[in-house]
Amino acid sequence: MDPEKDPRPAAGDDVRFEETVARLEEIVERMEADALDLDEALALYEEGVRLLRAAQGVLDRSETRILELRPDDDGFRLEPWEGE
């Protein structure tokens, strides 16, 4: 996909912020609730650390990106908005 056509804030890869945090919450809750096999606890922990890093990376973006959506022959296109 043309990156210009995907204005979602990819968190490192293509994970979206809200989904990232939701998965992180799920991991923490499982680790808090269950008597896990150690292998499993390790795997969850590693995933959790990765998600935390990804989420932090998103939050560290300080410049709001503004795009304009216009109809065109292919349906639509996105362009940087320079209206301000």
Partner: peptide, 19 residues
Amino acid sequence: RDVLAVVRRRAPWTRVVVA
């Protein structure tokens, strides 16, 4: 302008697409 000001202040990582 009002919407952009709030997004920048609260959640600047958020992208905004205007139609």
